[in-house]
Structure formats: C-alpha cells, structure tokens
Amino acid sequence: MSENSAAPGTPPGTAPGPQPEPIRFFGTTWVDHDGGYGLRRAGVAVGSLAAAVAACFVLRFAYEGLEIAEVGGFVGVLVIAMFSICSAIAFRKTWEGFGARPKDPSREDALRGLKSIGFIGSLLAYFVRSLTEAPGEKLRRAEYEKARAQFEKRRSTRTGNPAARKTSGRKRPKRG
C-alpha cells in the first residue's frame, strides 16, 4: 500500500492515504463491494468450480491412459494417492494463504511444485472461499484498515503549518 496515493474512485491528489491492494479478478472493488463485485464473485466461483471439474476429467483420461498401457494396479494406486495427497496439501496451503501472509516465503517457493500437482485442491479452495468473500479479502481488509488507522493517527497529531511555528527565542526577519 502506498501512503500518499488517493483512495480508489477518487481523483489523484484529493484524498491522501494508503491505497488498498488489488485482488486478482476483483481489483479494488472489494473495498466498497461496488463495480460488479457480486457478479465477479459469482463468476469466480463458477469459473473455479468448472476448472476443477474439467481438471478431474483430464486426470481421468490420464488414468485411463495408464490402464490402456497396462502399467499395473500399483502404479494406478500411486498416481491416485499422489494427486489426492497433493490436492489436500494444496487446498490447505491455499486456504491458509487467504488468511495470513506466509511466514517463510522460501518454504512457499519449495511447495510450488507440490501445489502445481495438486492444482485441483487450490481450485476448490478458491471456489469455497469465493462463496463468502473475494479470496484474500479478509486479510487485505484487515491490512488496509490498519494502515488507514495509522495514517489517520499520524495525520491527526499534525496541526497547523510547520513553517509558521515560532522558534524559541528567535524572531524571523520580516521579508519586504
């Protein structure tokens, strides 16, 4: 968030203060729930569920390919277990990401491959969260409100023009 930029929907320079962080597919419409926010949430929910269903069909075709290749039952069980476990982990990590910033970004980078394999879990987490709010809205709203409160607190402690303050014991020469 930038400290000296205008709030969304206001012309630049009219309302100084922190700027809300945009959310993918929502921009800054999550702040006031305007600009088609409800339709965007519905679209994200439907889109993520449709993508998860399509991904399940793709995985089914891949599994059928394994059956056609006659690789054996053990490999089929391993593939199903791998996608199930990775999807569960991806769901959990994606869900946690909606509520808090990662404490260790390097660990998140290390889990990127696992989350890619379990992409269905991430899509389902996105779907479930979009039923109640924009994914990540709660976290960004808390950060935004905290930044606004800090800005207002700093702003209220400043009074008057600092250039017009009198210095102790010294008089300024008059300009003529």
Rank of each mutant, 00 (worst) to 15 (best):
M1I: 02
S5Q: 06
S5C: 11
S5F: 05
A6V: 13
A6R: 03
P8C: 09
P8E: 14
G9A: 04
G9L: 09
T10H: 15
P11T: 04
P11W: 02
P11F: 02
P16I: 04
G17E: 09
G17H: 01
P18E: 07
Q19K: 11
P20R: 11
E21V: 02
R24M: 11
F26R: 11
W30Y: 06
W30I: 02
G35K: 12
G36R: 15
Y37Q: 04
Y37D: 13
G38T: 13
G38F: 13
R41W: 09
G43Y: 14
A45G: 03
A45P: 00
A45R: 14
G47T: 04
L49G: 03
L49Q: 05
L49N: 07
A51C: 09
A51Y: 05
A52V: 04
A54F: 01
A55T: 00
C56Q: 10
C56M: 15
V58Q: 01
F61I: 00
F61R: 03
A62Y: 01
Y63C: 02
E64G: 00
E64T: 03
G65E: 03
V71S: 07
G73Q: 14
F74E: 05
G76W: 07
V77D: 15
V79K: 08
A81C: 07
M82Y: 02
S84E: 08
S84D: 10
I85V: 15
I89T: 13
F91E: 12
R92F: 08
T94Y: 07
T94D: 07
T94Q: 05
T94H: 05
W95T: 08
G97A: 13
G97Q: 08
F98T: 10
G99L: 14
G99C: 11
A100G: 11
R101I: 12
R101V: 12
R101F: 14
P102F: 03
D104M: 05
P105N: 14
S106P: 02
R107D: 03
R107K: 12
A110K: 13
R112Q: 05
R112M: 13
G113P: 07
G113N: 12
L114F: 09
K115L: 05
F119C: 02
F119W: 10
F119S: 04
I120D: 00
I120S: 01
G121H: 00
G121P: 09
G121V: 04
V128L: 13
S130I: 10
S130K: 08
A134P: 08
A134L: 02
P135S: 01
E137S: 02
E137I: 01
E137D: 02
E137G: 06
K138H: 09
L139R: 15
L139C: 06
R140E: 14
R141G: 08
A142R: 00
A142Q: 01
E143F: 01
E143P: 00
K146Q: 15
R148C: 15
R148T: 10
A149F: 08
F151N: 05
F151E: 07
E152S: 06
R154L: 14
R155W: 15
S156C: 02
G160M: 10
G160P: 03
P162N: 09
A163V: 07
T167H: 14
S168K: 11
S168L: 09
S168M: 10
S168Q: 11
G169D: 12
R170H: 03
P173W: 12
R175Y: 10
R175G: 06
R175V: 06
